[in-house]
Structures are given as C-alpha cells and as structure tokens.
Nucleic acid binder design. Structure first.
Lengths: 208, 208
DNA sequence: ATATAAATCGAAATAATAGTACGAAAAACA
DNA sequence: TGTTTTTCGTACTATTATTTCGATTTATAT
C-alpha cells in the first residue's frame, strides 16, 4: 500500500534536512555547523535527523551528490550542443570554471581534492566515490564527442582524453589558488590567464 | 647569556615532539592521533606539548613546513644539475612524482589541496601558507633556468611557466587518483601514463 | 650550597560536539 | 477506537582538544 507515499515522504524529509544543511554549510562552514544547528533550522528534532541520515558526513555526501548531478547535467548540455571538438573543449572549460566559482567548496569535493573531514585516515576510503565518478563521466562525454580527426594523429585518443582532463583541472585549480598573485606577477587577471592557458593547451592538441 | 643555549634546547624539544607526531600521523593517521598519544610517545607531559605548540594543527603545520624544505631542496638540486630546459623539465616531473609517492599526505598539503582539517571554514585562511610558497618557489626555479630560447617563441615566458606548472600538477594528481583505472581503461600503468603525458606536454611547449 | 628562576609534570577541569537511548506525545492509519 | 509509525525531547555517552594551576624537578647564579 503506502509504498510510494512513504517513499515520497521520506524524500521530502531528507530534502528539508539537506536544504538546511546546505544553507548552514555555506554560511557557517561545514565544521562549525553542528547537528543541532541543522536540526533547528530544518525544524526537526536531532533524533529525527538521525533517522534519515546516519551521520553528518552522510548529509554532506548527499549534498555533494546533488551538485555532482547538477554539474554533470550542465556538462552534458554544453557538450551535446557543441558542433565540433573546439566548441566542446571550450564549453567544458567554461562550464567547469563557472561551476568552480559558484560552488568552490563542492567543486573541490567533486574533484576528489577533498572530503568533508579530510579523511586521508589510514585505510578509510570514502564510500561515496562521487569524486571519481566525475572523471569517468567527463571521459565518457569526451570520448563520445571526439574522434581521431579532432586531435593530432600522433596521439592516442584515450590517454589523450585523460591527459587533457588533467591539464584542464590543473589549470583551474592553480588559477584559483594563485588568483591574487596573477595580477602582480603576470599582469593578468584570472580570466585572462585562463583564456591563455586553455587556448595554448587546445592548440597543442589539435592537428596543425 | 643562555640565549643561544636556550634556543637550541627549545629546538630540541620541538624536534622531539615533531618526531613523535610524525610517526603517529603516518601510522595511525592524523585524526586518530591524539595529543595524549603524542605526549606519551615524545615522553613529555601534555602541558609541555602546549608550551611548544599552540595546537595540534600547529604541530601539523610545522611538519608540513619540514617537508616543504625537503622538497624544495630536492628540486633545487635536480634543477641546478640540469644542463638544459629539457633536463630541468623532466627532472622536475620526476622529483614531484617520487615525492608524491613517498609522502602523499604531505604532498597534498604542500600543493594546497588540503589542510589538516579541511579548513574551508568561512574566512579561515591557513596561517601557514606553505602551500602557496611551493608554487612561488617552483616558478622562481623555472624562471631562473629558463629562457626564451627554450620554449615556443609565440609564448610569453611568465604565464607559460605557471601554465606549465598547472599542467604538471594536474597530471600528477589525476594519475594518482585514477591509478586503479589506468590499467583497465588505457592498458597503461601509472608510470607509462605519466611518461606519455609529460612527454606530450613537453613537446607542445618546445619550439619545433 | 642555596636561593631564585625556568621548565616540566600531573591530574583534574572545561568545552564542544557527534552520536545514542528511550519513553512520551503526536500523527497516520485501519 | 485501537494499533502502528513517526517524531520529539531530554538526558546521556564518548571523545578529544585545550586550559588551569599548584607541585616538583632542573638549571642557574650568587
């Protein structure tokens, strides 16, 4: 009987909790947000929170998963609309940069740069490997829309795609980290530096 | 009077504590290592630990700083011994890869990928910006040993150095993260993938 | 050797917070 | 109306970083 309804209700409650947590994580930061905070804002008792999520990390991972889907959605649209490799490439770069700027916290998690509690704890492998999923997704997207005609003939497609992804994510990461210094050192803002790097990299990949 | 001696003693104590912490962090992991553990292993009372370090994070940061110096030392040697840009480049790559494999935990911190407690806490900027120092160092090293003759004439030197650094660090990061999958997907091991990527990138930079 | 100062210790107290326990109250349901 | 499910509230446990502070040991100087 109440199977579907029950499920819907459960989702409803989980969503409320996640919504509250999201807000708090963004304003107070993850570490400073307590389970009591979340309970209060979501207007549930703490016990109830623990009915729907088994831990704070569980909540965090759910949020990350949400953002993963958002990002993947954006990437899919952006790539599917592209006419050729060049458009896909720049679209992808742009998409990632915008996402990183909008949700730096979650971007880092999605990239596998970090977990909630930097759990490099010996032997503790994060259950939600959403971090890795993203890279698989990207590779799938690129493999689909890309052919041997698009890149230099001396490069093998599959390793090149991963290589390309490495470079792009490295560029974005460093650009963000060095944002302050770009101006001083290079007389460039982040925008310009990114354009320069993406372009230089693109041209190095394409057959000339 | 006892100025020099006092300083030496203080260093001695700090070193003992750091030594103990290092051991514990590596065996038990950072989070699972308590201040009591450190005190016991270092054979000091907990109160004394707090005389020399103001927090657990302070200890961690000191350790990271040590590794930063080690890495920088290795890089300096490796680059100063190189005859030309090609050697510097591959030496740098090799150095970083070896370091990353030896001390993955500290490598990540040095790279600014993570702090002890992933302190993306709002407004909390890590005091010890050792993360950023590394990048400056690398840039200095490369700028010194590199000239306009080494890279394509259409590229400006300074932005290119940062761009190069982005790509290298991205490649290493992704290679480590995807280590498991490289075999399945690319029929390559990490070693081979890295060689491929570094080489491809190098050739894209160099004037042909 | 002895008084003074500095370093260290011990042991208890504080504080913060994740997660648990469990009976009572409320809501949904049959 | 009786039964089941959900939610609540409150108190409790457990862990740990960090602080406090008087007592004790060690070094230094007179």
């Amino acid at each position: 009987m109440g199977e579907r309804k029950k499920f819907a209700l459960e989702q409803f409650n989980r969503d409320n909790i996640i919504q509250a947590a999201k807000e708090l994580f963004e304003t107070k930061g993850i570490e400073k947000t307590t389970m009591d905070d979340i309970a209060k804002l979501a207007d549930y008792s703490k016990s109830t929170i623990y009915v729907y999520f088994k831990s704070k990390e569980d909540i965090y991972n759910s949020i990350v998963k949400d953002y993963l889907e958002i990002l993947i959605g954006e990437l899919e649209i952006c790539i599917s609309q592209s006419k050729d490799f060049e458009e896909s490439y720049y679209g992808l770069c742009d998409c990632l940069v915008r996402f990183e700027e909008k949700y730096p916290q979650y971007y880092a998690s999605l990239m596998g740069e970090e977990n909630m509690t930097n759990s490099r704890k010996k032997g503790h492998i994060p259950e939600s490997s959403s971090g890795y999923e993203l890279e698989h997704m990207i590779r799938r997207l690129l493999e689909k829309g890309m052919s041997h005609e698009d890149i230099r003939t001396d490069l093998e497609l599959k390793p090149t795609i991963l290589y390309m992804w490495s470079a792009i994510s490295g560029i974005i990461q460093v650009a963000e980290r060095q944002r302050e210094d770009l101006d001083t050192r290079l007389n460039m803002n982040k925008e310009e530096y990114l354009r320069f790097s993406f372009k230089t990299f693109y041209e190095s990949l394409v057959r000339r």
